[in-house]
Amino acid sequence: MRRLLWVAGVAVALVAVTGCTDSSAPGDASSRPALSSSPLSSSEQPDDGQEPVAEPPELDDSEHLAGRQPETKGNASFSYAKGAAGDALIVAVRCQGAGTMKVAVKTVNVSFPLECLAGETTTTYNQVGVSGVEKPGTVSVTAPSGVHWSMTIGRGEPPAEDQQ
């Protein structure tokens, strides 16, 4: 399931949209920014038959990788690369474990909570289209120690209805 979070202008407006994707275009490892936390070992990965949290969410073929964080437990921050003017910022998060995590994209002053569930892997795609999203930045996550998560930051064209 794919939920998009649209952020427009100075005011933050959130609208959930549902769809599906089967894209499998991983980014080039050389384009990945440095990470500030350590991934979990494969022995710590939950085995529930769902998409593993160890695999960060994939982007659609039309989207470009800006940063990726492998499976992490609890709090962490990581950087992402700059993008082209006019592109939207995509924040795709996969999590598992009971608790609410808070994702903050400091460069554009946007944050949102995500509810993670015990025994279930949840993947959420958020798209941010405010001034400054083309700049490089940092994503900070605050999460309970029992929440495992991974994240992909991407760039893509904003939806046609958001373009002027």
Rank of each mutant, 00 (worst) to 15 (best):
A98R: 04
V93W: 00
N75G: 10
A88L: 02
G67L: 03
F78D: 12
L117R: 11
N109E: 15
P57T: 13
S79V: 10
Q69S: 14
D60G: 12
V91F: 04
G119E: 07
P70Y: 10
G83M: 02
A66R: 14
P57M: 11
D61M: 08
Q69I: 07
K102A: 13
A88K: 02
E120H: 09
E115H: 07
P56V: 00
A85G: 06
K73P: 04
V93H: 01
D60M: 12
T123S: 15
F78I: 02
K102P: 05
L89G: 01
R94A: 09
A104H: 05
V105Q: 09
Q96V: 05
T100H: 03
G99Y: 01
K106L: 13
H64K: 10
V105M: 07
N109H: 15
F112W: 15
A92T: 07
V110L: 13
A81V: 01
G83T: 11
C116A: 06
V93S: 09
A85Y: 13
E115K: 12
T123L: 08
G83Q: 10
P57I: 13
L59R: 00
A98K: 09
S77W: 00
E71H: 11
T72N: 06
A92F: 08
T123M: 12
K82I: 08
F78Y: 13
T123W: 02
T124G: 05
Q96T: 12
A92L: 08
T100V: 14
L59I: 03
Y125R: 14
N109F: 13
P113G: 07
G86T: 03
T122A: 00
A84V: 10
N109C: 08
T100Y: 03
G74K: 01
L59V: 02
T72A: 10
E115T: 14
E120A: 15
E120Y: 10
T124D: 13
V91W: 02
E115Y: 06
V93N: 07
C95N: 00
A84Y: 03
A104Y: 08
A104S: 14
G99W: 00
L59E: 01
D61K: 15
I90Q: 08
S111R: 11
G67F: 04
V105S: 04
A98V: 06
